[in-house]
């Protein structure tokens, strides 16, 4: 495991509960968003799963696991009606809180920069993969609806106005 990965893994492990707790409190304050309406314990379950995944990516260099997770997440959040922007804001909030964990762990300046870079790299991959998968899903769904669009267009074209409607 590269050194910075190793250190980030160790920090996530050592400050696990504290980091998860801060992330959950932060997400509950993201307003307006779906996240503010989720109770703390549900956030906790979700963020523990995400942190466990990050640790796996760092310890096993299993980047495919991150891609698969993010792709599934895109499917789920897209179907739940989340906007791309609010999920990106959540990624930002989580990354911020992990930075906070890193910063207060008392690393040397060089180590700090390397660990922060590793963290940034992880989140860049997650954000980019998520956006790509999220938009793919939306385009696929829109393409499926072409017949519906034609049928409605035909109706709008042929229907006449109401007798007392001057539009």
């Amino acid at each position: 495991m590269p050194k910075a990965d190793d250190k980030l893994f160790a920090l996530l492990d050592a400050y696990y509960d504290d980091t998860v707790g801060r992330i959950c409190n932060r997400l509950q304050k993201l307003s307006p968003s779906h996240y503010e309406n989720i109770d703390f314990e549900r956030h906790q379950e979700r963020e523990e799963e995400f942190l466990d995944l990050l640790k796996k990516v760092l310890s096993e260099q299993d980047w495919d696991a991150l891609r698969t997770y993010v792709e599934n997440l895109a499917e789920k959040r897209s179907n739940e009606g989340y906007s791309l922007k609010e999920v990106q804001q959540a990624f930002d909030a989580i990354e911020d809180e992990i930075w906070e964990t890193i910063k207060k762990s008392g690393q040397t300046k060089n180590d700090l920069i390397a660990i922060l870079r590793t963290c940034r790299n992880l989140f860049n991959v997650a954000r980019n993969e998520f956006s790509r998968a999220f938009l793919d899903k939306q385009i696929t769904h829109q393409n499926k609806m072409n017949t519906l669009k034609e049928r409605f267009y035909l109706y709008r074209h042929d229907r006449k106005n109401l007798p007392d409607d001057d539009s």
Binding site: E80, G81, K137, Q138, H141, Q142, K144, M145, K149
Partner: peptide
Amino acid sequence: VDNHQEVESALRLL
């Protein structure tokens, strides 16, 4: 809810 995205796409498309 299971077809949320289809519903929302359709609403916007129309």
